[in-house]
């Protein structure tokens, strides 16, 4: 951006307001915030909360794209607002709304308890037959073995992929991109033998077969996790399991 370019002094934000005690449905409220080249949408929201309207509610914490708290719809796309620069949305107004497909609790805050239930269901922990005592040291894992699942371990649970997933929008029961990616993170970990235990939930009626491979989850992921890839990959292994268990029920799964 050239230094002579004229910058607007302020930017307009149209922000969702919803207080269930007072309003029957969400509305958009317009605010002005100063425009700064290095401000992100979250900075503007904090300006509004601090100086203009203390009653605006939203979640945030780390402001460096790793805690996963501040996901919202910015001009209709799921974004971490701590990494969405105002300069990318000029001249505005910028529409800031809660993540879609989730129930709204208040203003920009959504209810994500559904995800927490699903996360627990996929057993996102190392499953082993027997624990080796700590005195025997670490489980060896080569950098190549680490690379096989590493990408899926980068999920920050920000929920952008759920807000991008048209299937989740239609079928709220769908286990969804992040939970499947995290299941696959453990399935692919050389220290884990839990794939069989995760099979029912992943291959069940709300599992991977719901996905029609739209791929929006991968596009919006701020951490370059590839949930769509995880799902495709799992379809191959899941299909193999299904084939074996249905057509060859006497065979070993």
């Amino acid at each position: 951006m050239g230094s002579r370019e004229k910058l607007p002094p302020t930017v307009t934000l149209a922000v969702t307001r919803y207080r269930p005690e007072e309003e029957s449905e969400p509305t958009l409220q317009t605010y002005e915030a100063p425009y700064r080249k290095d401000w992100v949408v979250l900075d503007a929201l904090n300006y509004i909360k601090d100086k203009v309207d203390g009653s605006l509610s939203f979640r945030w914490s780390c402001r460096m794209g790793v805690c996963g708290s501040c996901g919202m719809m910015v001009n209709g796309e799921p974004k971490l607002t701590c990494a969405a620069f105002l300069s990318d949305y000029l001249p505005g107004p910028i529409r800031v709304e809660p993540l879609q497909f989730f129930p709204i609790v208040r203003d920009l805050v959504v209810d994500m308890t559904d995800f927490l239930h699903k996360l627990k269901k996929v057993k996102p922990w190392v499953v082993r037959e027997e624990e080796r005592p700590l005195s025997e040291g670490e489980y060896r894992q080569t950098p190549e073995q680490l690379d096989i699942y590493k990408q899926f371990s980068m999920c920050i649970n920000c929920m952008l992929c759920y807000a991008a997933c048209p299937i989740y929008g239609l079928e709220p029961g769908f286990v969804g991109p992040a939970a499947i990616a995290l299941a696959q993170r453990y399935n692919l970990d050389s220290r884990d033998i839990g794939a069989q235990e995760r099979l029912d939930i992943l291959s069940g009626k709300d599992g991977i077969w719901e996905c029609t491979f739209v791929g929006e989850c991968t596009k919006v992921c701020p951490k370059n996790v590839d949930p769509a890839g995880a799902i495709q990959q799992y379809k191959l292994t899941g299909a193999a399991h299904w084939f074996k268990s249905v057509l060859l029920p006497w065979g070993r799964k």
């Binding site: 922990w125 190392v126 624990e131 080796r132 700590l134 040291g137 670490e138 489980y139 060896r140 894992q141 080569t142 950098p143 073995q145 680490l146 699942y149 590493k150 371990s153 453990y186 970990d189 220290r191 884990d192």
Partner: peptide
């Protein structure tokens, strides 16, 4: 060290040497 190993046993993706050790 035992606490670090415990975290490894719980699945923490520690960076590794080529032979698989921490």
């Amino acid at each position: 060290p035992a606490e670090m190993l415990q975290l490894e046993h719980w699945g923490c993706p520690w960076s590794r040497q080529p032979d698989g050790r921490i």
